[in-house]
Every structure is written in C-alpha cells, then in structure tokens.
Simulated scan of single mutants.
Amino acid sequence: MRSTSASSWIALAAALFLHDAAAFTIPTRLSRRTITVRYMAGGFEWEDPGEVFDQGVENPFKNPDLMKGGDDGMKIDPARLLGPRLNGSNLYLVGMMGTGKSTVGDIVARRIGSYNLLDTDDIIEKASSMAIPEIFEAEGEEGFREVETQILNSVHPYVRCVISTGGGIVTRNENWSKLQTGIVVWLDAAPEVIMKRIEGTDRPLLQTEDPLQTLKDLLEERKEKYAQSDLRIEITEDMNEEEVASQIVFDLHNFIDDNPPAWKLAKAKAQSEGLDWV
C-alpha cells in the first residue's frame, strides 16, 4: 500500500463529495500510522442559482404576512424563506470551540430545508478514522490545521451548505479566500459560558493548568479574525441552540436586505434611468 503525505487530503476530501453514495478506499498517512479510509459520501446536485435568482421573496420579519400559513393555520418558518434569498450561497459558521457551531448549523440547515450541513471536524474524523485529539497528538496543531485547510478547499465549491468549521480555521489567511465566497457567521460566547458547555470534554488546546485562562488567551488571539465575519451572533448563558439558530435566521434576512447582490443593484439603476432590464 502506498502512503501519501498530508497534502493528499485535497484528493481525499474531493473524493468524499464528488459522487453520490460512492465508496472510496484511499491510503493516507498520519505520523507513522498507515490507515485505509473507506467513507460513504453523499454528493449534492448542482443547480445554477442564476436560473432562479429572482424569486421575489422578501424579508418576512418586515412583511409578517409572508409567514401566514394556509387554511390549516400553520405559520411558515422564516428560515424556509432564506433558501431563495440566499441564492445558493454557503453559510460558514466560525467561532471558538463550544459555541455550538455543529448543533446550531444542523438546526439552521434543517429549518431552511434546501440546505445541507457539512462539519469540517466531522469530515476529518470520518475520513481518518481518528478523533481530533488523536490527530493533534500525532501531528500537532500545525499538522491538523493543514488537514483542515485541505478539507475547506474541497468543500467550499459546493452550494446550499451550512458549513461548521473548527475554531482555529480563521487563523490562516488562506482560508479566508474560501470563507468569503459565502456568508460568514461568528458565534461569539464569553469564555466562562464556553467552559460550562465543554466541561468534561478533552479539547486538545485546553490541556493546560488553567484551561479558562488558555481559552481567554485563544479568544484574544483570534478575536480580530472573527471580527471579519459578516455577522456576529452574541450567545448569552441563557440561550439554547434553537434560540441561537433563530437569531441567525433573523440577522441573515436583514443582512440580505442591507447587501443586495450586484445584479439587483444594476437592475434598480437601469430602471431608475428608464432602461429596460433584460
């Protein structure tokens, strides 16, 4: 069996998502350990957003009538109206460990209905058959960040995804060229709130004498990077995952209003000048 270096993770991650229900056996090497990866991958069908880019959906929070249901009296989830407004753009959830990116991302994707959740940490663990702490132990943080970057490079071309990322993915400038192809949402919680959430877990970077101080130091190092996100969701101690997801939905609708796509601006300009829009 031929071993490959960490750079081969590009081919690995791409293979995982290229074909629907396809199985791949790919040799990889982490440190001195040779493993065989076999992963059942789910693909996503491409649909050009340009064909349906203007569906006339408005912000339901500014037009509550849009959320009124039919004769059964059931209300329409405002998240369902995000799908046509996002036009296929991916949502990238960033933030410190323990802020609930994976759980919240799954809720948001399910509520939108037409979106799928991709979790970069989950992909890495399934692809390598190793837990994140094991990868840190074998390769160190730098080795893990390299793998993480390769995974991001491979998943970012897909559309209609909520992508939950690792807490340190923002530390590499090269990753921002991928993150900024979509809408970046920062889940921000105080270190004290995070510590209560992750109590009892084996987070590699917190294996120190003072985990809380380490967490504070990490947040301080990354804060400037996180602040480059399109949206910041402040998570308080009394908020649950559903409430965080609802805040994301609300803020996304307003963000879309404040940042219309270029074609919409061009259309408005043409119409204001009395020109036909084709």
Rank of each mutant, 00 (worst) to 15 (best):
Y226F: 08
L205A: 13
L215Q: 06
D202A: 14
L218E: 06
E174M: 13
E174I: 14
G166K: 04
E221W: 00
K225Y: 12
E199C: 04
V185E: 08
G182S: 04
R172N: 13
R197N: 09
K196R: 14
I194L: 04
E221Q: 14
D188Q: 12
T181M: 13
R203P: 07
D188I: 00
R203D: 11
N173E: 15
T214K: 15
E192K: 10
W186Y: 14
I169Y: 03
L206T: 08
K216Q: 15
A189Q: 05
N175D: 10
V193R: 01
K178D: 04
P204L: 11
G182A: 04
K196F: 00
I169E: 08
V184I: 12
D188L: 03
G168T: 05
I194S: 03
K178F: 10
T201Q: 14
D210T: 12
Q207K: 15
D188G: 01
T201P: 04
Q213L: 15
N175F: 03
M195I: 03
W176A: 05
P204A: 11
M195D: 05
E224Q: 13
P191C: 06
W186I: 05
K223V: 00
A190N: 11
I194K: 04
R222Q: 09
L215A: 04
D217M: 05
I198W: 01
E199G: 08
I183K: 12
I198N: 07
D210V: 09
M195Y: 00
W176C: 07
E220T: 08
D217H: 04
E220A: 13
E224D: 14
E192P: 01
N173V: 10
Q180T: 12
Q213W: 02
E209V: 03
L212P: 04
D217V: 01
I169C: 13
L219G: 11
E199L: 09
T171P: 00
E174V: 15
D217R: 06
Q180C: 07
L179S: 08
K223H: 09
D217P: 01
T208A: 10
E221G: 07
V170Y: 02
V170R: 03
R172M: 09
G167C: 12
T208F: 03
K216W: 00
E220S: 12
L215W: 00
L206Y: 05
D210L: 09
P191K: 09
E199Q: 14
L218I: 12
D217Q: 10
T208Y: 05
M195R: 07
E209K: 15
V170Q: 04
R172P: 03
E220L: 07
N173M: 12
L206R: 11
N175M: 11
P211I: 02
V184L: 06
T181V: 09
D217K: 05
T208I: 06
V170H: 02
L218T: 07
A190T: 04
W176T: 02
D217T: 06
A189G: 09
L215P: 02
I169K: 08
L206I: 07
L187S: 07
L187Q: 09
T214C: 06
K223R: 15
T214D: 05
D202Q: 14
E174Y: 00
T181R: 15
Q207G: 02
E174L: 14
G182N: 06
V184Q: 10
R172Y: 04
V185T: 09
T171A: 14
E209D: 15
A189M: 06
L218Y: 01
K196C: 02
A190S: 12
W176D: 04
A189C: 09
R222F: 01
V185S: 06
V184T: 13
K216E: 12
G200P: 11
Q207Y: 00
G200C: 12
